[in-house]
Design a protein around this nucleic acid. Structure first.
Length: 821
DNA sequence: CAATCCCGCCAGGTG
DNA sequence: CACCTGGCGGGATTG
C-alpha cells in the first residue's frame, strides 16, 4: 500500500508502471474472469490477480468487448504512461490482445476506448467475486485498485459511486470500500423499482413520449394536455425526491458519502436504473432519461436557479414552477443554496442543459417528423451525455453480473441469510436485516416498520416506507429541504407514513434530531394525483421524513410504494403485477434490455430460481421455466415490474437538491424538446455498471432518442425489431429476453448462456446467457426484422416481444454482440 | 462538425 | 492540515 499518498503525488501512470501485468493481462481476461467464479468470495476481492484466472468466462461477447477494449487500452496505457516504462509488463498480457487486435491499433490508437470507463469498470468488477463471502473481508482499497488498474483514482471514484448506488459496494472509510457483489443486487433493484414506481417514472416516461410524439404532430395540443398530466405527475411523484436509496443492510457509513451531494453520480445512477426497471418496454430514451432525471432534479432547479442567479431565461422552468412553485423554490434553494457553494457550480452545467434542451425543442419543433428514426441515429443526436456513460457502466456491470449470476441458486436463500451477514459493518437497522431476510414473505408483511438505520447521513433523513404491497420497506432519506418537496408518489403515501416514519426517522438520524414526520402534506398533495392508470396500484407509501433538520426543512416523505399487488402477492404474484402494468405506451428511445433487470427486479434474479439465469431472463426462457419463482411467461411482460418482491426495505436518501426535482416532465417546453442533459456525472459509468448488473443490456445503453420520432410511437418498431426474432422467446421472457440478441439467434444465446453459465454456475439449471445476449443485441434501428409493429402491443404483454432489443449500441465494446461464438 | 467522454484541476469535505 | 472526493471544464477522439 503505497497507496494513498503516493497516489496523490504519483501519477497514476507511474503507478501504472506498477500495474501488475495481471491486470492488464486480465483485461480481456479480466472481464471474463470477473464473472468467474464465485470462488471469488473466498478470495479476497481486492486482489486483482484473481481476475486473471478467469478468462474463460463468459460469453464471448464480453470477451470481445473487453478484449477489444482492453488490448488497446493496455497498449495505449503502456504507450502513454509508460512511455518510459510502463513497465511493460503488460506486454505479456497484452500479447494476447495484441495478437487479436493487432498492435496496430495500439500504435495508431491509444484511443480512448482503451481508457473508457466501461472498460475500466469491467476490470474493476472482474477483480471481485460476484458473490463474495461475507465472512471474508472484502475490502477494497481505492488506491490499490487505482494502481492495479492503472488509472487515476478519480476514475475509480466514478465506478465506485455507481456500484455504491447499486449497493454492490459500500464505503467503509476513506480509501476503503467493502465489496458486496451481487448479494444485495436483487434487493436493490427491487427497491429501486419500487421507488421508481413511486416516482411514477413510468408514467413520466409515457407522458414525455406522448408529448414528444404529439408535438411532432401537434405541438401545441399535446403540450397543453400532457403538460398537465406531467405536471401532475411530477408534482406527485415526479420528482424523485429521494436522494439516495439505501438498503437496510447496506447503508452508507461514510458520513461524507451521505452528506455529499445528492445529485451526484450515485443518485443519478439509481434514478437511471429506476427508469429501466419501471419502464415496461425497458427502452429508455436518453432524452427521456435526461428529462426525467436531470429534469427532475436539475432542470427545474437549474432553471430556477438560473433565474435566481442569473436571469430568468427559461420559460421552460416556469411551467413546472407553476405547478409547484413553492416547492420548487424550496427545492431550488436547497439544491443550490443549501450547501452553498457547490450548488453554484452546478448552475453552469445546468444552464447548459437547459439551453441544450431548448435548442432541442426548437429542433424538434422544426423537424417534427421522422417518427421512427432509427434509434441509433436519434439517440446519437439527442442523447444526453450522461446516459451514455451510465449506460456503459451499466452494461458492463450487467454483463458481469449476469455472468456471475450463474450462481443464482443461492440467491434468494442465500441472500436472505446473508442479508444479515451482509454487512456486519452496517450498523444499521436491524429491521432492515430482518427485512432482508424475508424477501418474499416480507413482501406480504408490512415491513414498513423497518427501522431506519441510523445512517450517518448527515443531512438526509431516512424515511421508511412500509410497503405493504411489496412487502418491502425501504427507507428513503430525504434532505430537509427535500422533505418538503417530496410528495408521495401518489396518493398512496399518506397511508403509509405514520408507522414507519416515526420509527425510521428516529432511529436513523442520529445527528439530527430526528423529527419524524410523516408528511401528510406532501403526501396528500401528491396523493391527490393518482398514480396513473398505468400503475397498478399505488401502494401505500409510508412516508417519513426525517428531517433532521427540523430546523428548517421539513421533511416529508413520500412513501414509496411499490406494487401493491406485490405486497400481497408473492413473487409470482408480483409477476402478475407486472403484467398489470401495461403501461408503457410508446417506447421512445432505446430499449434497455432489462431482462436482467426484470429478473432482478423480480425475484428471479434473486430467487435464483434459476441459478444460472438469475440475471438474465433469457436463461429462464431457455431453461426451464423459471424455477419457480416466477413463471417467466406470465410475468414476461411485466417482468419488469416484479421487482418488488424481493425488495427489501430500502432506504432512500433524498438529497435536498433532488427534492426540487419534480419538474422533470413538467415543463412542457422541456418535454417537448429533448432535454439535453447537461453533463452528467459520468453517465458512462452508470451505463456500464448497469449493464453489468444486467439491468441494462450493453448494447442498449441509453441513448437519447433524438428526435421526436424516437420518442414517438414509431420508435417502438425499433425495439421490436430488435426483439423480433426472439420475440417468441422474448415474449416468454418478457423483457428480459429483450437482451437476447435476436439476431444471434436464440441458439447462440443459449449456447452462450450455457457456456457462460455453465462454468461459472455450479448448477446450470437453466442456461443463461442472457447477458451475452443482451450484449449481442443488435439494436436494429429500423427494426429490421420485423418490428413487431406496434410497440405498444409489445408492451401489453401479449406481444411483448421485444423488449430486449436495443438499437444503437453506442459503444463498440458493449456491442460485441455476437461474439459469443 | 458534432457528439462523446477522458483527463485532471481544484474546491469542498472529511479524518 | 493533509488528504479524500468528486464536480466540472477543457480538449482530445470518435464517428
Amino acid at each position: 500500500m503505497e497507496n494513498q499518498k503516493e497516489n496523490l503525488f504519483s501519477e497514476p501512470h507511474k503507478r501504472g508502471l506498477m500495474k501488475s501485468p495481471l491486470q492488464e493481462s486480465s483485461k480481456a481476461n479480466v472481464v471474463l474472469a470477473e464473472i468467474q467464479p464465485d470462488l471469488g468470495p473466498l478470495t479476497t476481492p481486492t486482489k486483482p490477480k484473481e481476475v486473471c484466472q478467469g478468462e474463460p468466462w463468459t460469453p464471448t461477447a464480453n470477451l470481445k468487448m473487453l478484449i477489444s477494449a482492453v488490448s488497446p487500452e493496455i497498449r495505449s496505457r503502456d504507450q502513454k504512461r509508460g512511455l518510459s516504462d510502463n513497465r511493460g509488463l503488460p506486454e505479456a498480457r497484452d500479447c494476447l490482445h495484441e495478437h487479436l487486435s493487432g498492435d496496430e491499433f495500439e500504435k495508431s490508437q491509444p484511443s480512448r476506448k482503451e481508457k473508457s470507463l466501461g472498460l475500466l469498470c469491467h476490470k474493476f468488477l472482474a477483480r471481485y467475486p460476484k458473490y463474495p463471502n461475507p465472512a471474508v473481508n472484502n475490502d477494497i482499497c481505492l488506491d490499490e485498485v487505482a494502481e492495479e488498474l492503472n488509472v487515476e483514482r478519480r476514475r475509480i471514484y466514478d465506478i465506485v459511486n455507481v456500484l455504491e448506488s447499486l449497493h454492490m459496494v459500500s464505503r467503509l472509510a476513506k480509501n476503503r470500500y467493502t465489496w458486496h457483489g451481487r448479494h444485495n443486487l436483487t434487493k436493490t433493484l427491487g427497491t429501486l423499482k419500487s421507488v421508481g414506481e413511486e416516482n411514477k417514472y413510468a408514467e413520466q416516461i409515457m407522458m414525455i413520449k406522448r408529448k414528444e410524439y404529439e408535438q411532432e404532430f401537434d405541438f401545441i395540443k399535446s403540450c397543453g394536455i400532457e403538460d398537465h398530466v406531467i405536471k401532475s405527475n411530477t408534482g406527485q411523484n415526479g420528482h424523485s425526491d429521494m436522494c439516495f436509496v439505501e438498503l437496510p443492510g447496506v447503508e452508507f457509513r461514510a458520513a461524507s458519502v451521505n452528506s455529499r451531494k445528492d445529485k451526484s453520480l450515485r443518485v443519478m445512477s439509481q434514478k437511471f436504473v429506476m427508469l429501466f426497471l419501471v419502464s415496461t418496454p425497458q427502452i429508455v430514451s436518453l432524452e427521456i432519461a435526461a428529462k426525467i432525471l436531470i429534469g427532475e432534479d436539475h432542470v427545474e432547479d437549474l432553471d430556477k436557479s438560473k433565474f435566481k442567479s442569473s436571469s430568468p431565461d427559461m420559460p421552460l422552468a416556469t411551467s413546472f414552477l407553476e405547478v409547484e412553485q413553492s416547492a420548487k423554490e424550496n427545492c431550488a434553494k436547497n439544491l443550490f443554496s443549501t450547501r452553498g457553494k457547490p450548488n453554484f457550480t452546478r448552475h453552469p452545467s445546468l444552464i447548459k442543459l437547459v439551453k441544450s434542451i431548448e435548442s432541442d425543442r426548437r429542433k424538434i419543433s422544426s423537424a417534427p417528423s421522422s417518427p421512427i428514426k432509427s434509434n441509433k441515429a436519434e439517440s446519437s443526436q439527442n442523447s444526453p451525455p450522461f446516459p451514455n456513460k451510465m449506460a456503459q457502466l451499466a452494461a458492463i456491470c450487467k454483463m458481469q453480473l449476469e455472468e456471475q449470476s450463474s450462481e443464482p441458486r443461492k440467491k434468494v436463500k442465500v441472500k436472505l441469510a446473508r442479508s444479515g451477514h451482509y454487512k456486519p459493518l452496517a450498523p444499521l437497522d436491524p429491521a432492515g436485516n430482518t427485512e432482508l431476510e424475508l424477501p418474499a414473505p416480507s413482501l406480504i408483511q408490512p415491513l414498513g416498520v423497518v427501522p431506519l438505520i441510523p445512517s450517518p447521513l448527515s443531512s438526509a433523513v431516512p424515511v421508511i416506507l412500509p410497503q405493504a404491497p411489496s412487502g418491502q420497506s425501504y427507507a428513503i432519506y430525504l434532505q430537509p429541504a427535500q422533505a418538503q418537496m417530496l410528495t408521495p408518489p401518489h396518493g398512496l403515501s399518506p397511508t403509509v407514513c405514520p408507522t414507519h416514519s416515526s420509527n425510521a426517522t428516529g432511529s436513523k438520524d442520529p445527528t439530527d434530531a430526528p423529527t419524524e414526520r410523516t408528511t401528510p402534506d406532501a403526501a396528500k398533495s401528491s396523493a391527490s394525483c393518482r398514480p396513473g392508470s398505468l400503475q397498478p396500484a399505488p401502494e401505500r407509501h409510508g412516508a417519513k421524513n426525517g428531517s433532521k433538520e427540523t430546523t428548517g426543512e421539513r421533511g416529508t416523505k413520500r412513501a414509496s410504494t411499490s406494487e401493491d399487488s406485490s405486497s400481497v402477492k408473492k413473487p409470482k404474484e408480483d409477476l402478475k403485477a407486472l403484467e398489470n402494468v401495461p403501461t408503457t405506451l410508446f417506447p421512445s428511445g432505446y430499449l434497455i434490455p432489462l431482462t436482467q433487470c426484470s429478473s432482478l427486479g423480480a425475484e428471479s434474479v434473486l430467487s435464483g430460481t434459476e441459478n444460472s439465469g438469475t440475471l438474465s431472463p433469457n436463461h429462464r426462457i431457455y431453461g426451464s421455466p423459471i424455477a419457480g419463482v416466477i413463471p417467466v411467461a406470465s410475468s414476461e411482460l411485466t417482468a419488469v415490474n416484479f421487482p418488488s418482491f424481493h425488495v427489501t426495505p430500502l432506504k432512500l436518501m433524498v438529497s435536498p437538491t433532488s427534492v426540487a426535482a419534480v419538474p422533470v416532465g413538467n415543463s412542457p417546453a422541456l418535454n417537448s424538446s429533448h432535454p439535453v442533459p447537461a453533463q452528467n456525472p459520468s453517465s458512462a459509468i452508470v451505463n456500464f455498471t448497469l449493464q453489468h448488473l444486467g439491468l441494462i443490456s450493453p448494447s442498449v445503453q441509453m441513448s437519447a432518442s433524438p428526435g421526436p420520432g424516437a420518442g414517438t410511437v414509431p420508435v417502438s418498431p425499433h425495439v421490436e425489431a430488435a426483439s423480433v426474432i426472439p420475440d417468441n422467446l422474448s415474449s416468454r421472457q418478457g423483457r428480459a429476453t429483450s437482451h437476447d440478441s435476436p439476431v444471434l439467434g436464440q441458439s447462440q444465446l443459449n449456447g452462450q448462456s450455457v457456456a457462460g453459465t455453465g462454468p461459472q454456475q455450479p448448477v446450470p439449471v437453466t442456461p443463461k446467457g442472457s447477458q451475452l445476449v443482451a450484449e449481442s443485441f443488435f439494436r436494429t434501428p429500423g427494426g429490421p426484422t420485423k418490428p413487431t409493429s406496434s410497440p405498444y402491443m409489445d408492451f401489453d404483454g401479449a406481444n411483448k416481444t421485444s423488449f430486449g432489443t436495443l438499437f444503437v449500441p453506442q459503444r463498440k465494446l458493449e456491442v460485441s454482440t455476437e461474439d459469443v461464438h
